[in-house]
Design a protein around this nucleic acid. Structure first.
Lengths: 254, 254
DNA sequence: AGTCCGAACTTTGTCAGATGAAATCTGGAA
DNA sequence: TTCCAGATTTCATCTGACAAAGTTCGGACT
């Protein structure tokens, strides 16, 4: 499930985390200079090697740019590796901005119906088996808000896996990092969970039968509902449009 | 357009390029150890700092894993940042594998219709203006195979930009890295280019009018045609099956 | 003979210092 | 004021040293 390779204890990854989070969350805006290596050594309490290795990692993710003698700058946002797991985590964790919740909901609307369609075209027996299992888990956990989130993520993941397309699957895995954070904020209700079960089942059935048209339509229904829910929660609870970092409001949607 | 931050001349990025490409292209399979730092210093002719910085970058992209005293290993493929620009370039450049061409074609089928739909929902005047401009460029370059490729990429990019969704746009930018390589291999014909113009225009019109349904359908037509073309070219010209990565099945399932 | 313990070894992690290279800044001269 | 050269700043790279954490292997003990 996309585990990190490095320990957080490592000095250099501490540099990555600290600077990366500051950049992505908007302190240290694009174009602004990062302190010199010497100063970072002092501020972060690590050696120069650690600083340099950390900075290089961030350069590799498109967040920083180093120029000899001119210092290190934060790159423009359109150079960032927005689908890098770390970058996405810094952006959506622990609490995403309201606008980013819309971004994510739109992304799912754009992506998931098409993925379900390709899954219907490509799924083999094993993939359908996996989808069936995760669907069963979805039914089984409908009463447990916490567990339902994970089961839901697993179900959608199984569909992407069924597409037999590693890029699509990876894309979903990355997105689910953000999705998990959003879900923590917008926990649905039990009744609401149960309402979505038939839609999910329709998706699974359509894929198994190879009905790509139906699979797509059913999945569209699922993600459109999810988007509408998120939208209404934002509308009713998180009024502030400006500046807002945190989306407050755990409340009922609508 | 997603420019690199580091010069290729830099010692440490030479390490990144060399090892990264070897890993992604299948030499150095997952689980296999990478030579020790000492040996890499000798083999690559750079100092230890450069080796370490390069390795750290690859760790940041999920390709490598380091353990003190146990050496450095290539991570399993499902840990790789498959949508990292470098990783994608190593994979698709200069010549992608046949299976990867299918992967890419499927990805577009899954993604682009949905993106066109969201674009139809979200596009503002400026975005529609940009789409109109790139569409005009498409018509203007239909006789120039080379230029048409770039114009086509720009048109599709404009649609993703119209979605007002930075994750979607970034996704397309990354994909277009791979797309450009594939196009170099499968250059279409001039007649073929002209056939696709009406479909492209339908997409643009539908988006401008906010007809998300029609935009999606028109875009589906475009990418399905592209997929069919790629498929037939593979079938007729690129007979070699060997070495393949996975899932061949292009056929209708079941 | 088999098992367990610990020392030696290997390999990455980190720091410190020195030197090189490339912009930038600063004065001064035309 | 403009322009050029030197001083300065800051990253790039190499080297050496030591720490930390596994791994390996030999020997003592049962």
């Amino acid at each position: 499930m996309l585990r990190r390779a490095y320990a957080e204890s490592a000095r250099h990854s501490q540099v990555v985390q600290t600077l990366g989070e500051q950049i992505v969350r908007g302190r240290r805006p694009p174009g602004s200079p990062v302190p010199t290596e010497e100063r970072l050594v002092a501020e972060l309490g690590v050696g120069r090697s650690a600083v340099r290795e950390g900075v290089k990692v961030l350069v590799g993710k498109g967040l920083l740019e180093t120029r000899t003698s001119a210092g290190t700058l934060v790159r423009a946002r359109d150079s960032w590796s927005l689908l890098d797991p770390d970058v996405l985590r810094w952006r959506f964790h622990p609490t995403p901005e309201e606008d980013d919740i819309r971004i994510l909901a739109d992304l799912r609307v754009a992506l998931e119906p098409g993925a379900a369609r390709v899954a219907a075209e490509r799924a083999d027996a094993a993939a359908n088996q996996r989808i069936a299992e995760t669907l069963a888990a979805l039914y089984a956990t409908a009463d447990d808000l916490e567990a339902f989130i994970e089961a839901d993520l697993a179900f959608h993941r199984a569909i992407f896996a069924a597409s037999q397309n590693d890029l699509l699957l990876y894309l979903y895995e990355v997105i689910s990092i953000a999705l998990r954070s959003v879900r923590k904020v917008h926990t649905g209700s039990i009744e609401h969970n149960k309402e979505t079960l038939p839609n999910h089942e329709r998706v699974a059935v359509a894929i198994r039968r190879g009905h790509h048209r139906k699979a797509e339509e059913a999945m569209r229904e699922v993600v459109e509902v999810a988007r509408a829910d998120a939208e209404s929660q934002l509308f009713c609870c998180g009024g502030s449009v400006a500046s807002g970092r945190k989306a407050r409001g755990n409340g009922r949607r609508r």
